[in-house]
Simulated assay, not measured.
Amino acid sequence: MELNGVSAVVSGGASGLGEAVVRDLAAKGAKVVIADLNEAKGKALADEVGGVFVQTDVTDEGQVQAAVQAAVDTGAPLRVVVNSAGIGWATRTVGKGNVPHPLDSFEKVVQINLIGTFNLMRLGAAAMGATEPADADGARGVVINTASVAALEGQTGQLAYSASKGAIVAMTLPAARDLSAIGVRVNTICPGIIDTPIYGEGEAAEAFKAKLYAPVPFPKRMGKASEFSHLAIALIENDYMNGETVRFDGGIRFQPK
């Protein structure tokens, strides 16, 4: 998929993995819509890269449709959707004192991570389907979803998170098969331990991060958001990559805890 002169929507695009993707897409000549809840960061980044910010709760159909429409309104054909909005959660199914996992927190994680991903994928793909084909193959667009290695090897307390991310993996192939009818590809990335601003800064933060990446075989460090984006762009640009789930984790295999 040629990225110069197209439009794209990136959920969670104001920071972390999404921000890295926004920057790389813009550098390739795409007009990027940053769909995020953080207005201050989103607007600042949009101004910096010549994109558009739309405040977006990915679980809200109207707000997601507005983000997709903003991409269409740029006048450049919508060709790319990257789902990187999500939240984490850690609670055991039954915790100390025989207390069950709160139902509302489980529902919230699934609502944002899974249903939010599906929401943008379906609306974005529908808009792609309304465009003219980009090449002789009939390609109209690409969706990149973000899951996690926790989808495959969830640790203790990751029930809600693993369920939401595992379902994203599970829907990759059927979504790719469904959307092949309109020339839209779907691939999913499963990141491992990635260095994002969520861990904070300073000596204590660095010590905590060192414990996290200790089990990574090589390279012995956390992944970089720029490396995640490099992979996402490669999956978008390689026209024969479709229906795939790709681990991005330095070879780590999570233990129970």
Rank of each mutant, 00 (worst) to 15 (best):
T131E: 15
G138M: 00
L120W: 03
N113I: 00
L123E: 08
T156R: 13
A150W: 11
A147S: 15
A139E: 15
A136S: 13
L123M: 11
G154R: 06
T117R: 06
Q155T: 12
A134V: 11
A150E: 15
A147V: 09
I115W: 12
P133D: 08
V142N: 14
N119D: 05
D137Q: 13
M121F: 07
D135F: 07
S148K: 05
M121N: 08
E153V: 11
V109W: 08
R140D: 01
G141W: 09
I112T: 05
G157Q: 08
G129A: 14
I144H: 02
V149W: 02
N119I: 12
R140P: 02
D137H: 07
T156H: 12
T156E: 15
L152K: 13
E132N: 09
E132L: 11
D135V: 08
E107H: 12
Y161M: 06
D137V: 05
V142S: 15
T117S: 15
T131H: 05
T146C: 09
E132Y: 06
R140H: 01
E153N: 14
M121W: 08
G157C: 06
T131F: 09
G157P: 10
V110N: 03
V142E: 12
A134I: 11
V110H: 01
V109Y: 04
G116C: 03
I112A: 01
R140Q: 07
D135H: 01
V143R: 10
D135R: 01
L152F: 10
A151K: 04
V149R: 05
Y161F: 13
A134C: 01
V142L: 02
L123S: 10
L114T: 09
A160W: 00
A127W: 02
I115C: 07
G157L: 06
A126G: 09
Q155S: 04
E153P: 02
A125C: 05
I112D: 00
D137I: 00
G157R: 03
A136H: 04
Y161R: 05
E107F: 05
V149Q: 11
V142M: 10
E107Y: 05
P133C: 10
A160G: 05
L152E: 15
D137R: 13
P133W: 05
T131Y: 05
F118P: 03
K108Q: 14
G124I: 04
M121T: 14
R140V: 07
P133E: 09
T146F: 03
G124K: 08
A127S: 07
T156K: 12
A147K: 07
L159G: 15
I144R: 03
A151Q: 07
G129C: 10
D137N: 13
D137L: 13
L152G: 08
E107W: 04
M128H: 08
L152C: 04
V110D: 02
G116D: 03
G141Q: 09
A160C: 00
T146V: 02
E107G: 07
V110F: 11
A150H: 14
Q111T: 13
